[in-house]
């Protein structure tokens, strides 16, 4: 394993995996406990419009994704809360509109878009150093917000209506949380691509939930798990020459199944012995 680190792209891939793990471990916990997996999936897919926009304007697609995914997150949240349109309907519509816009933008852009497949399914082996710096700053922003507002986020995740009765600005907090999800999506696009982002936002947090009932321990555990799972996936994809994003997702999914099955066997053995 060590010898593959002599390649710069491999070192960058490893650093990118670790940086993505921090954001997805922390934010994934909220996605799982607040049960907002669907809206997170919607934000991730709609973010593809931002990639297309980046191509169209001839800038780094990741720079197009940041405003686009935040706009998608805010519109899904606001339409879902303030109009009579059910939230999941709004998510479904914006989800496909974002992707469709992306396709149109790419088609309108001059020339051929060779890296498009990478943005859809991940291209962790081609992460440039400039993206590493962007990932570092996004992580810093996410950690700073969660560190100062984790009690508030915990309260709106546990019981949003109660949080309103004690006077918390629950809607603004919820929209802020959606923006953090959008930033996490930006971080994860390089690792697994927009289509597979939701795997890393849910699986590590879902596994860690089986082992602790404290949100903070859940976050530490899922950052750790996310790092292990992406690095395992990365190594397997290198060893067997498989697409990295898809391998990471399959490794994570398998880990979830194994953990769930072993936990339920453990519980049934334990309850029989009483």
């Amino acid at each position: 394993m060590i010898e593959i680190l002599q390649y710069e792209f491999m070192r960058n891939a490893l650093i990118a995996a670790l940086l993505a793990s921090i954001a997805c471990g922390i934010i994934g916990v909220y996605v799982v406990v607040k049960r907002i997996v669907f809206i997170s999936g919607g934000i991730a897919h709609a973010a593809f419009g931002g990639i297309g926009l980046g191509y169209f304007l001839g800038v780094n697609p990741v720079l197009g994704v940041i405003p686009f995914s935040i706009a998608a997150a805010l519109s899904m949240g606001i339409i879902g809360r303030r109009t009579k349109i059910p939230e999941d309907t709004a998510i479904g519509i914006l989800w496909v509109m974002g992707m469709a816009l992306g396709v149109i933008f790419v088609a309108l852009s001059p020339g051929y878009a060779p890296e498009l497949f990478g943005y859809l399914f991940g291209s962790i082996l081609t992460v440039p150093t400039s993206d590493i710096i962007l990932m570092l700053s996004l992580n810093a922003a996410i950690i700073a917000v969660v560190f100062s507002l984790h009690r508030e986020f915990q309260a709106i995740s546990f019981d949003e209506e109660y949080a309103t009765t004690i006077g918390l600005p629950t809607e603004r907090l919820y929209l802020l949380l959606l923006c953090l999800i959008a930033l996490t999506v930006v971080l994860l696009i390089r690792v697994v691509g927009v289509i597979l982002v939701i795997a890393l936002l849910t699986i590590p947090a879902a596994i860690s939930r089986q082992f602790t009932h404290r949100l903070s321990s859940m976050m530490f555990l899922s950052v750790f798990l996310c790092a292990i799972l992406t690095i395992c996936g990365l190594w397997l994809s290198y060893a067997f020459d498989l697409p990295s994003g898809a391998t990471i997702v399959l490794v994570s999914g398998t880990a979830f199944i194994l953990s769930t099955v072993s936990k339920s066997i453990h519980i049934s053995v334990f309850s029989k012995s009483i």
Binding site: E152, L168, R209, H213, L215
Partner: peptide
């Protein structure tokens, strides 16, 4: 199943 302790639930009442 929400991962939260009794202590943290009670403290939520002080958030505001």
């Amino acid at each position: 199943d929400f991962p939260v302790s009794i202590w943290d639930v009670v403290l939520m009442g002080r958030l505001e």
